[in-house]
Structures are given as structure tokens and as C-alpha cells.
Design a protein around this nucleic acid. Structure first.
Length: 919
DNA sequence: GAGCACTGC
């Protein structure tokens, strides 16, 4: 009874407020809308029937109209057929042939070149040179399989180039070679240029996003990321600019390389003179050959030093360790019951797989009984940092000098092991250096980690899978592989991204082992049994099967590859139809595709921006509303990565600094914008590095983000959505200091990603979304420890299920902002009041006239956006358009101040420290 | 109280 009363009381307190716009705002919206009738009705709200009967919005701009209709009505087969007849840059020119031939022959007289050649001759791949060249000569597609250290990445393109130069075919030879990572594209290009005793930009070049050193047009090799090749194919689908395409590391099965492989299958029959080389690790080379009608495969042996392997059973004989006993029986709670069931499942699997093996070990009597006893314990399959620490100590005490590399699943584990080691007192800084290595930790940007430590000091690196391929530390001799890795997936049935630890694949395990044998023979300690290894998958799941497909679909549409499902059924491992449907539905909601899967004008722009479609929409709004700096900064941070480090042991200080950057706005997004703004101010003053240290930010990331902002501005300028290609230009930043507006645009871009705050607990904030029910705010969000929110609504970009469903980045938004952002709200009249529901279980009660005005404002704004994307142009800040935008600005700003958000800047501003190019 | 790793004319 007491609780019921208390509850009632609570409900009373929560009696819904009725939203009413202030008189002034109502008047100005009315005046504006009256004006609007005259202005926009004939222009905005009419559609026209195109020749094909499809419904499109009215075009004025003929240039955009031409481009757009071309994409809508074209198809790849026609384009390829057309492209074949176009004369390419690669025209035979006997003068060039002769010059390049002499130039190449000349090299053999240089000592430097010949010294490099001596080294190259030692690579295993060199023994197969003539065989590879013959295969390429005889076949259009060849698969080259080879292990690390065989030299294929640096040599194969050179074999082809040198062969053609020598044969006098320089003018018609141009090789493009893709790499999955930016760093490798650059470093391979640099290495190859060095081997040819040239500077970059001659016969060797590279191109990655925001950075290039192109090679000459004839007789050359261009190393680039796979994404760049895809971009090239958008305007040169037949790849007329190239004679050879080499795709390296395709066994990694990135979405991009899988996509390119599928696309090339259509290009090959039309361009019989194009040679394609697919380079892969040995493990799955066969499947690529199969995919290309059993094209020939050539295998190249690798060269690495031998690595001795140990498994859990061996490790237990080196160190004395007891796994904790099995967990207690379940209690009645449902939550625990679920976990208990999971554990039972695991236990059964454990017994099925491992029992026979343990019996065999017993029979062989190779291991002592106490070890066998440990293996019987199902907890031996769980990650034990204690055991790993004991093993590290064992290696340090009994083995020869050499760096130790430890693979762990994630940040928490790295942090815990690091702490454990420091607190044990066994790793004095005179004899040990310990580096945690994670993409979000400051050590990734340090060069120190690659250096050999002073004599008598042992280097210990505690890393995630980042040290498998992305970061190579040469002097590693001992590898400890915990056997697990965190894996991002997309749960189709629940429509949610997940991140959970899983057993690695054999390919990962092999790669980890190989890290121990780069400079001399090494040792690898697997923290799982030989039996467990037998259950590992051969390879990780291809990326295309574990991510959302919006961007892939937009690519399919701009490349005019036809129906999405039809095309995706031709990739090597086609994604789930349900996953395709979910992404198609979202693109339709965003108005990027129409009901028939056709690209809309908005979709056309989103497909051309190097951004996720939601953040793409955000930057279009940012351009229209003239608040480019903060919005572009937020969009770049969300799709690329944010610059905030997680510094071990200083997490609290880092969180405080982030809170400071959020400027009392209850918003991670504002903190992202502010971080980049202050970085740019600091850079102009010459103290950017110091600023980054003080605020626990990554200098490298901020630098890239800043450049990305400029790239967005360039595209939008070319499309005429902006008046300047400089993102700092005053004309693009009239409203950059209006924080309420910034939040409104963030919300409009991220909509329908809205959550409602339910309650604040000791352990953080619990919120609610219609799709998932209860969700948590991630501890790294500035909003996780807020006790009193000015509004109950949050917008977010990333939602991910790990130990719970977390919203990683959040912005608290007021009701008017929510109304502005939600494009499909419905207004119902009930008991004399208007109830606005926003595709969302929460309803907002609104005073009648305000409701109508908001709805009309919404419609006018949507028409404006549609009109603008169809007829790209900037807003003329002196006309009706500006009245409409100002009315919206007023609407979203109004209650922000009342709610206690500080909406205007006092100390800091985008207009301070003026660097605007007024001209 | 916690984010494997990549990428884009």
C-alpha cells in the first residue's frame, strides 16, 4: 500500500507538461508560413513524371539533373560496352616505349640498384618469377598464394612492370595494386621505390584517402587502398586506365575486396586485355580460384623462422596454476538463470569436445595427473590473466632475451593485466618495459614501441588483435596467444550490432604465431588445448556477413549494378536476405531510396560522400543551416573515429577533460566538435601537441578529422551546397555558435536513434528505446554520470550489445529539437488536446495551435531539403528560405535556454581567432 | 563502469 501510494505520488509529479510555443515564436512562424505559400508552393511541392514514368522531384539544375538521371537509368553492362570503345590513356607510343626501356636497362648499371636486386633475389618469390609471368601471359586471372615473408607484395607487380618495360611495352602498362590498409599502401610503395632506386612519383606511386603521390601515367605501379580502386571504378568502370589489377591480401575478406572481386567478374569478359592477379594467404586461395572459374593458382612458399608451439597442457606443466572451481548452482533469479543456462551449454560442448582428448592424453601418460585434473575443469577454457602473468614470469626467468607479445581480447583485459603486473612488483622498470597496445590508447601513436629496448631490458607488449596485422613489432620472440578476440557482428534477428569475445580462427592463430618468428626462431604459447584448436573455424567470417549493408547498397546503386539482392547473390559469400531488407528499409526511411529501390536525389549525394548515410545527411543539413565547422567535425568523428584516448590509469582525468569539452551541454557530440575546434585553434597558435596531451586526445586522429572536414566541404562546394570549399569560411558558419541548432541537426541526422532516460542508478543511467527496451549509457559518455537531465530525450549514433546494450555517444535534446528532427510524426486530437507521437512510444502533449505550426514547419523544411538536394544550391540568406530556417532556429533554441542548457557561447566561438577567408 | 580491427575520387 505504501509503495502504491508512493508510486501514485511519483506519477503525479511526472504529470506531462503541455508544450506551448511562445507567442513571439508562433507569430514569426505564422508570418513566415504565410509568405511561404506564395514562395514555395509552385516550386517545392510538385513532382513531375519523367519520360520513364518514374516520379522525381522537379529539377532546375541541368547539370545535376543530367548526372542523376544517368545514374538512375544506366546499367553497368551498357557502361562497360560504352567504355570499351573509348580510347584510353594507355595508347601505344613507341617513343615512350623506347625511353622507358632505356631507362630500365640503365638501372642495371647502378650499384645501388644492383645491391637492392641482390636482396630481392633472395626472396622465395623470385624463384617463381618466370612461372608467374608465364601464367599471367596465358591467363586473364591468376591466383597467387603465398605466406608472409615470401615477398609477393613487393615483387609481383615489379616482375610484371620490368618484363613489360624490357619488352618495350611501357606505354601500355599501368599496374594498380590494392592493399587493405592505408599504412601498408604507403610503406609498400616506399619500399618498392627504394628497390628501384627512385623517388615516389616516377614508376611507383601511392594513393590513399586524403594523401597521394601518383606514379607516372605509363609504365608504372600505383599502390592504393581497396576503397580508392572502388572510387576509381565509379568513373572508369572498365578500368581503361590500367593494364593490370593486383588485389593483395584478399584472404582478409573485407567488404571492399569482396565487392571489387565481384565487380571485376563483370568487367573481365568485356576487357579481355585486362589482367587480374589475386593474392591471398595459402589457407583459402583455393576458394578464390573456384570463384573465378577455376583459374590457375600458383603457390609460393614463405619464409619465417621456425616457431615452437605450446598448448595449454604444456603451459600447465611449466607453471603451477589451479583454475577456480566451477561456479555455484543457479539461484531462482531469471537473470541468473539465463547465464546459468549459457554456462551449461558451454559445459556440454566442453565435455563433448575435450573429454575424448583428455582421455587420450591420460592414456599417453605424457602429462602429469595434476595437469590432466586441471584440464577437466571447464574453467580452464576461460581467460585467466593470473595464469598468463605466471607464464610471463616463467619466460622472463628461464628464457633467453627477446620481446614478449601477449594477445588479449580487449581493453579491460589489457588494463587488468597491466595493473596486475605493475602491482606484483616483479617487473621493475630497470629490467622491463611494458606497453599496452590498443587502438584507443596513446601507445599506438608512439614510435618507442618499435624500438629495441636497451641491453638487459625486456620489452613486454600487451595487445589486442591490432598486433596481428596492423602493427608489426620486429623483435618479438615470444608470443602468448589467449585464443580469444572480440568480434563485431550484426545480429539480424534483433537488428543490433554486437561485440563479444570469441575463439579466434585458425588463420588468426597462425598469424599470431608468425609474429614470434620475424627476426629469429621463436616460441608461441597458446592458452587453449590442442583439442579446442580443432574446433576453430578456418577463417574469420567475411566482413560483409557481419556488418550493416547501407553503404554497400548505395555503392551498388551508384555503380548501376541493378537490383540489390540479385547483385549480392553473386558475391563469394552472399549476406542474409534479412540483413539486406533491414538496410533497404533504413535507406528508404532516410529517403535515400524510393520504394522501388531507386536512388533518390538525396541518395545520390549520400552515395557520393565518404560517410555513413546518416552522418551524410547530417552534413547536408549542416551546409543548409550554415553551421559547417561543428557539424562536419561531429560527422567525421562519428564515421571515422573519435580522438579521445583511453589512457591507462588516467581514465578519470580523461573523462573530466571530455566533460569540460562538452561545455555543460549534456552531449558527447558537442565535446567532439569542441575538441576539434580547440585543436585547430591550438594548431594555429603552434601548440597543438600540448593541447592534445592535456586533453588526452590523439593528435594523428584530430589531424585526419580536420582534413576530412575539408574533404566534405570540397564535395559540397563542388555540388554547390556551399559557397566556399574552405570549411571555415564565414558563409558556411553563420550559425556555428548556436549550440541548440547544432544539437538539432545532430538529432535530425541520427533520427530515429532516440532513447528516453528512465532512471539514474549508482551504476549509471538506464534508458529505454522502443526496439530494445532497457539500454545503458556507455561509461565513456559524458552523460553516464549525470543525475539530473534537463530533458528525458537522448539521441545517439552507436548502439552496441556487449555486456549490456550500450549507447556509446549521446546528446540530451529538448522536445522542440525532437519535433524538428522527427520527419514522420503524427498528430492526433484527443480530449481537446493534441498528442504528437514520433514513431516512438512516447507521446508529447501539445497545445493545439503550437502543434499545427510545428507540423507545418516540418513539412516546409522537408520540402526545402528535397528541393535543395534536387537543385543543389546554397541558401540565399536574404529570402524566404532564410525566414524558414530562422523560424526553425528560434523553435529549437527557445526551450534550450529555459531548460538550463547554455545555448550561446561566451568565451569560445567559431568566430574568435578569426581565420575566415572573408573573400 | 567499459569501445576487436579496418576503410572512402
Amino acid at each position: 500500500m505504501y509503495y502504491r501510494n508512493k508510486n501514485k505520488e511519483r506519477q503525479k509529479k511526472k504529470a506531462p507538461e503541455v508544450l506551448k510555443l511562445s507567442f513571439n515564436i508562433q507569430e514569426s512562424i505564422k508570418a513566415m508560413l504565410n509568405n511561404a505559400d506564395k514562395y514555395y508552393n509552385p516550386v517545392f511541392c510538385r513532382s513531375f513524371e519523367s519520360e520513364q514514368g518514374n516520379k522525381y522531384h522537379q529539377f532546375h539544375d541541368t547539370q545535376f539533373k543530367r548526372k542523376f538521371l544517368e545514374i538512375i537509368h544506366g546499367d553497368i553492362q551498357q557502361n562497360l560496352a560504352k567504355a570499351i570503345n573509348v580510347t584510353s590513356k594507355l595508347q601505344r607510343n613507341s617513343d615512350i616505349d623506347r625511353i622507358l626501356q632505356n631507362d630500365y636497362r640503365e638501372k642495371h648499371n647502378q650499384d645501388a640498384y644492383n645491391n637492392m636486386l641482390k636482396l630481392r633475389l633472395k626472396l622465395p618469390v623470385y624463384k617463381k618469377r618466370s612461372e608467374i609471368l608465364q601464367l599471367v601471359e596465358d591467363n586473364q586471372v591468376v591466383v597467387i598464394s603465398g605466406e608472409t615473408g615470401c615477398g609477393k607484395t613487393t615483387q609481383v607487380a615489379q616482375f610484371i612492370l620490368d618484363d613489360e618495360l624490357e619488352a618495350g611495352n611501357g606505354s601500355v602498362t599501368r599496374i594498380i595494386c590494392t592493399q587493405p590498409r592505408r599504412i601498408s599502401a604507403i610503406s609498400v610503395a616506399e619500399r618498392v621505390a627504394m628497390e628501384r632506386t627512385e623517388n615516389l612519383g616516377n614508376s611507383v606511386g601511392y594513393q590513399i584517402r586524403l594523401e597521394k603521390q601518383l606514379s607516372r601515367d605509363h609504365g608504372s605501379i600505383l599502390f592504393c587502398t581497396t576503397g580508392i580502386l572502388l572510387q576509381i571504378m565509379k568513373h572508369d568502370p572498365a578500368l581503361k586506365g590500367f593494364s593490370h589489377v593486383i588485389l593483395d591480401e584478399i584472404h582478409e575478406r573485407t567488404t571492399e575486396s569482396d565487392f571489387v572481386i565481384t565487380l571485376l567478374k563483370q568487367v573481365i569478359p568485356k576487357r579481355l586485355d585486362l589482367k587480374v592477379l589475386l593474392m591471398s594467404a595459402t589457407l583459402n586461395a583455393e576458394s578464390f580460384s573456384k570463384y573465378y572459374n577455376n583459374c590457375p593458382t600458383i603457390h609460393i612458399p614463405g619464409f619465417t623462422y621456425p616457431v615452437q608451439e605450446f598448448y595449454l597442457e604444456d603451459v600447465l606443466s611449466f607453471v603451477n596454476y589451479k583454475f577456480p572451481e566451477a561456479p555455484p548452482e543457479p539461484t531462482g533469479y531469471r537473470k541468473h538463470l539465463k547465464r546459468y543456462k549459457e554456462q551449461q551449454c558451454k559445459k556440454e560442448e566442453f565435455l563433448d569436445i575435450l573429454q575424448p582428448y583428455i582421455r587420450q592424453l591420460m592414456a599417453e601418460k605424457k602429462y602429469e595427473t595434476h595437469i590432466i585434473h586441471q584440464l577437466w575443469n571447464p574453467n580452464s577454457e576461460n581467460l585467466s590473466l593470473e595464469l598468463i602473468e605466471k607464464l610471463v614470469r616463467y619466460i622472463c626467468n628461464t628464457k633467453a632475451p627477446g620481446a614478449i607479445l601477449i594477445f588479449l581480447p580487449g581493453m579491460i583485459d589489457i588494463s587488468n593485466l597491466n595493473k596486475m603486473m605493475l602491482e606484483s612488483g616483479c617487473y621493475s622498470s630497470h629490467t622491463y618495459v611494458i606497453y599496452p597496445l590498443h587502438s584507443r590508447m596513446p601507445t599506438v601513436d608512439q614510435k618507442l614501441i618499435f624500438k629495441e629496448p636497451p641491453h638487459g631490458v625486456r620489452k613486454i607488449i600487451i595487445a589486442t588483435s591490432i598486433a596481428e596485422t596492423s602493427i608489426t613489432i620486429e623483435d618479438v620472440v615470444y608470443v602468448i596467444d589467449c585464443g580469444k578476440t572480440k568480434f563485431g557482428k550484426f545480429d539480424v534477428s534483433k537488428n543490433i550490432q554486437t561485440l563479444e569475445p570469441e575463439w579466434v580462427s585458425l588463420a588468426n592463430a597462425k598469424q599470431r604465431r608468425g609474429r614470434a618468428g620475424r627476426v629469429k626462431s621463436g616460441e608461441c604459447y597458446h592458452m587453449y588445448t590442442k583439442a579446442r584448436e580443432m574446433t576453430f573455424d578456418h577463417y574469420p567470417l567475411p566482413e560483409m556477413l557481419r556488418t550493416r549493408l547501407e553503404e554497400v547498397i548505395l555503392q551498388i546503386k551508384t555503380l548501376q549494378l541493378g537490383r540489390v539482392k540479385e547483385f549480392l547473390s553473386t558475391v563469394m559469400d552472399p549476406p542474409d536476405l534479412k540483413a539486406i531488407d533491414l538496410s533497404l528499409a533504413l535507406l528508404e526511411t532516410l529517403n535515400a531510396l524510393d520504394k522501388d529501390e531507386n536512388l533518390t536525389p538525396l541518395g545520390y549525394h549520400l552515395a557520393h560522400l565518404p560517410l555513413d548515410p546518416r552522418t551524410g545527411k547530417m552534413i547536408l543539413w549542416g551546409a543548409l543551416f550554415s553551421c559547417v565547422e561543428p557539424i562536419f567535425a561531429i560527422a567525421a568523428s562519428l564515421t571515422f573515429k573519435d580522438a579521445f584516448y583511453c589512457p591507462l590509469g588516467q581514465e578519470e582525468q580523461a573523462n573530466k577533460k571530455k566533460l569540460e569539452l562538452s561545455m555543460g551541454q549534456y552531449s558527447d557530440h558537442i565535446a567532439l566538435a569542441e575538441a576539434l575546434r580547440r585543436y585547430e585553434v591550438a594548431r594555429r597558435r603552434g601548440n597543438a601537441r600540448q593541447f592534445c596531451r592535456e586533453y588526452f586526445l590523439s593528435f594523428n586522429t584530430l589531424k585526419l578529422l580536420s582534413e576530412m572536414k575539408a574533404q566534405f566541404a570540397q564535395y559540397l562546394y563542388e555540388m554547390r551546397f556551399l559557397d566556399s570549399e574552405n570549411p571555415s569560411h564565414i558563409s558556411s558558419n553563420r550559425n556555428s555558435d548556436n549550440i541548440a541548432l547544432i544539437k538539432a541537426i545532430v538529432c535530425a541526422g541520427l533520427y530515429p536513434n532516440i532513447a528516453v532516460v528512465r532512471r539514474v542508478t549508482k551504476n549509471g543511467v538506464v534508458s529505454w528505446t522502443p526496439e530494445d527496451g532497457s539500454v545503458r549509457i556507455h561509461p565513456s559518455s559524458v552523460n553516464n554520470r549525470v543525475s539530473n537531465f534537463p530533458s528525458r530525450y537522448l539521441t545517439y549514433f552507436t548502439k552496441q550489445r556487449s555486456t549490456a546494450i550500450f549507447l556509446h555517444d549521446t546528446t540530451c535534446i529538448s522536445v522542440p529539437i525532437l519535433l524538428f528532427a522527427g520527419p514522420n510524426m503524427s498528430i492526433k486530437r484527443e480530449k481537446g488536446q493534441y498528442i504528437i507521437s514520433i514513431n516512438f512510444s512516447e507521446t508529447i502533449i501539445c497545445e493545439e495551435e503550437s502543434a499545427e505550426l510545428i507540423q507545418e514547419l516540418q513539412q516546409a523544411l522537408n520540402s526545402l531539403l528535397e528541393y535543395k538536394v534536387t537543385n543543389p544550391a546554397t541558401v540565399s540568406w536574404s529570402t524566404f528560405e532564410v525566414n524558414l530556417l530562422n523560424a526553425i532556429i528560434e523553435l529549437v533554441s527557445q526551450t534550450d535556454q529555459e531548460l538550463g542548457f547554455d545555448s550561446t557561447r561566451e568565451n569560445a566561438s567559431y568566430h574568435e581567432d578569426s581565420t575566415y577567408d572573408i573573400n
